[in-house]
Design a protein around this nucleic acid. Structure first.
Length: 275
DNA sequence: AATGCGTGCAACCGCAGTATT
DNA sequence: CAATACTGCGGTTGCACGCAT
């Protein structure tokens, strides 16, 4: 058997949140912090499922959210990031402090798509309209390099707009996997490097590699614990890169990484398991 | 004033990856 | 190890609002 059921779906509210529900959620999270969304609704006295609470908090109630219109700088950054990452809204949002993936996704669909079209660019391929069919599979976005490594050559994670370009060849296994459907390695490398040339200020060397197979060299508890943490959408690995920092969470509570280390010229951020 | 249409955005849905029992 | 729940993400939907007719 697995876990107990997530929530009583039959007795949950749906639709727009009321001010009272918002206040209950805010009060509860202020008192107890985020996490354990399953039990939160019951504990907070909300007739919502945990998923709905999480969404409401992340997209609307979080105190660090930046409300209001997107600036031109944010527009351009989103366009650049999208050209490199594709529809990886959470990754893009990580580079825009105070913005949520949902907000950026909506903004993209309502504003930026039109903006690009008015410039004569295909919003998916970022190429001139009509020019993309020759080089790209029209059914798929050009380069959703979800496994790109956001690398930073600076000692501290660099946040927009200052990012340093670094073409990464030290990690190819997953990249090859994505290439297998669309082209050769050479094609991919050419395309990627052309994109880097296009946006030289962006360093989206995001390749999340296969686990670093380092031997546990120490029996020290703290050190060995640091070797075990998770990166979103990645298998449990021994060591990896802290995407929180790299994607611009800065000092938010979203990241509790503690140490850095340089490996092959790339700073890697280690975070202890927090439970 | 009534209606229709387009737009913006909050919220939902379904899925994949991961954790837990 | 299998079964099942939890979490987070991207895609989509539906409603409220503003504007034009």
């Amino acid at each position: 058997m697995g876990r107990s059921p997530c929530c009583e779906k039959a007795h949950t509210n749906k639709g727009a949140w009321t001010k009272e529900e918002d206040q209950r959620l805010i009060n509860y999270i202020r008192a107890h912090g985020e996490g354990c969304w399953r039990s939160l609704p019951k504990s907070a006295g909300l007739l919502r499922c945990g998923k709905s609470c999480r969404l409401r908090w992340i997209n609307y109630l979080r105190p660090d959210l930046k409300r209001g219109n997107f600036t031109d700088e944010e527009d351009e950054l989103i366009i650049k990031l999208h050209s490199l990452l594709g529809n990886k809204w959470s990754l893009i949002a990580g580079r825009l402090p105070g913005r949520t993936d949902n907000e950026i996704k909506n903004y993209w669909n309502t504003h930026i798509k039109r903006k690009l079209l008015s410039r004569g660019l295909d919003p998916q391929t970022h190429r001139p309209v009509g020019a993309s069919a020759t080089t790209t599979n029209p059914t798929t976005p050009t380069t959703p390099y979800s496994d790109v490594v956001l690398s930073s050559s600076s000692p501290t994670p660099a946040f927009p707009p200052e990012m340093i370009i670094m073409n990464s060849n030290h990690n190819s296994s997953k990249v090859e996997e994505t290439q297998s459907n669309s082209g050769t390695t050479e094609d991919h490398q050419q395309e990627q490097s052309s994109q880097y040339r296009q946006y030289p200020e962006l360093n989206l060397d995001l390749s999340i590699s296969l686990p670093f197979q380092t031997e546990p060299t120490s029996t020290n508890t703290a050190e060995s614990k640091q070797q075990q943490f998770r990166v979103s959408k990645q298998p449990v690995i021994a060591q990896a890169i802290c995407l929180c920092c790299r994607l611009g969470f800065q000092s938010s509570q979203a990241c509790n990484c503690q140490t850095t280390m340089i490996t092959n010229g790339v700073h890697r951020y280690y975070s202890p398991l927090d439970s």
